[in-house]
Design a protein around this nucleic acid. Structure first.
Lengths: 193, 193, 193, 193
DNA sequence: AGATAAACGAGACGGTACGTCAGGTCTTCGC
DNA sequence: GCGAAGACCTGACGTACCGTCTCGTTTATCT
């Protein structure tokens, strides 16, 4: 059995890194963002505060770190070679990510915090949202290639129309986002693309 | 000249109330929500902390108080007896409210905070968003009455489709929301209501 | 029963002040200066760190505060109208203060700390030692007045000769300071004043 | 030129040892004992913390190490075969050691620290002060041998009387210790030995 | 000429305490 | 009785060092 890692010459402890990310995730889920503290994360992770501050600049920074992998994994659109189905499935997955997954809770917390913190907003956009936007474009671009959509289609506006109502419900009104709702958005878009 | 009010036997000081609301508004605009503290508001307003806690439960509560009047004032839709024009104008006003006004900044801060604070989320929805939703429905209801829209139109989905993309830009991507964009949303909606 | 004091407009809590001084004294006696921390004092006194820092600048400052009264009380020389007896008694009292009393332990800790901290050294000298020096002079001045000592006696050197050996044992060699020893110092001084 | 030493099989690096002792001495002189840290010494000496902890147990231990040689060198009493002159010269040297030399600063810091640290106090006494006491006795013992002092002279009390006032000024009152003062102590002692 | 093993630098680790800040509560006194 | 003032306890902040630990390198000595 490998002894517990207590630092070495070549870089950080992967063990400590994982403990921190898991502790942050768990505490966010259990108590919410407002009750999330660096001290609490350190205690839960069995890690010293200094170790956290050595590698992350704030609790927000930790949450961003937990988010990186999950988003690409969960939010890559499928390719059924069928525009309607691709959109329907992708929207549904995004809806489930946002409303049901732990990573979605992290994401909502960060978007909320970004309303108070322009630096976080900028970082979210350049590092996360732009990649997600690139993934969201894929089904539409494939649709244009196949001729299912007109050549001149404004893909960004399409994405705003398809996903905007979903974010409105998730972030503002708190209404549920069932498949019937997301499918209706697809219908509306395809009726007047 | 009447001396500054320092308490009396007949109800609260309107002066203190206004100082607090203004101070909160100003500090939010100047430094942002994260730097907004009850102590800072008290100092700026020339009021004691106790006075604030006597009448409001938190800084969020103060901001809610500043919001109440402004929203009804700024976000009541006009009535040109023309569905397209009503929607276009109303969406444009909402966009300007959200992106340019001080009250809009307060609103965004509160929606952000609501991501971390379920009690605030609930209060926002019951006390503010539902009223706003009622105002948003008016142009569409009038359109249905006039026969500009089919009788079975789902007004709530319509609102989600019209305003969702706008919120997506404001709260998430940070992209501007020019009139051209909001008009395009109206076009898309009217093309497939 | 009077409720516990939790602050008021005019002045500090005497209760908090006493708790802190007692806690500091106790902890010094129990664990020594090195283990004395502001956090520990706060916890023991049932007081917040903030309250300590509001009124004292450091643990050293607290200890100085505990010392003020005790020194004048314990170290005022008696007046038997007899030089030898006055000196003998005063030296003995100083020796007991330094070696046996709690206040003496505080004093030794502060003199020790003053070796590392010039600001403390200066403060000790101006605020405490100079007053003690004034008290130490009294028996000798009375002896000069009575003609028991020559008019030109250098009182300060006399004090150095009488008390120096005592401090050497207390601070450096750690040897005991019995009455036989202090009396011998008095004898030696009176033999060649 | 030999490359910098990075360890060898048998025995420690003399270079590292010297760097550490010098760094500790310099930092004590520059910033004082309170600001002296093992990390600071390591950085200044170009040595790793581990190397320090391998050979010394604390910063105090390092300072003790710097002191060992210096004391014997500087504080061995001369032998002029003249009691008054021997004592006068030795007292003067001790005074200069304590007040003017770097080693004296180290010594004062350690005596200060010993007030908070019984283990250090014990070690200082057994390893350093007893040797110094042996040196201090020499002039007096020679005086007794020569018949300059009575055979029954209590040498330890003599040392306390001669050196005590000096320590009082150095450690407590901070007054200067000029030759006139030390000579006066010798006069007083010889007048009533 | 290796192989070995002690001592080295670097630096990450779990901790303790620091001194500061804001939160929310309580008490006094002036108007 | 309201409001200003401000002291209080609580709890988290981010920092400085502590003393421990591993790692990969260097180098004197022993095969």
């Amino acid at each position: 059995m490998p002894a517990l890692h207590h630092g070495n010459r070549h870089g950080r402890s992967e063990q400590a890194r994982r403990s921190v990310l898991e502790a942050a995730d768990d505490l966010l889920a259990e108590r919410g963002f407002a009750a999330l503290t660096v001290e609490g994360i350190a205690a839960r992770a069995g890690v010293s505060k200094q170790t956290i501050y050595r590698w992350w600049s704030s609790k927000v920074d930790i949450l961003l770190d937990t988010l990186a992998d999950d988003m690409a994994q969960m939010l890559t659109p499928p390719d059924y070679r069928d525009l309607r189905r691709d959109l329907s499935e992708h929207l549904h997955r995004v809806a489930r990510f946002l409303t049901e997954s732990d990573a979605g809770a992290v994401y909502r917390a960060l978007v909320g915090q970004a309303q108070h913190d322009p630096a976080l907003a900028a970082r979210l956009r350049t590092d996360y949202l732009s990649e997600q936007r690139a993934r969201d474009r894929l089904p539409l671009l494939r649709g244009i290639e196949r001729g299912d959509l007109p050549a001149g289609t404004d893909v960004d506006v399409a994405i705003d129309r398809l996903f905007g109502p979903l974010y409105l419900r998730v972030l503002v009104t708190g209404e549920p986002v069932p498949r019937a709702f997301t499918d209706r958005l697809v219908d509306a878009y395809l009726a007047a693309p």
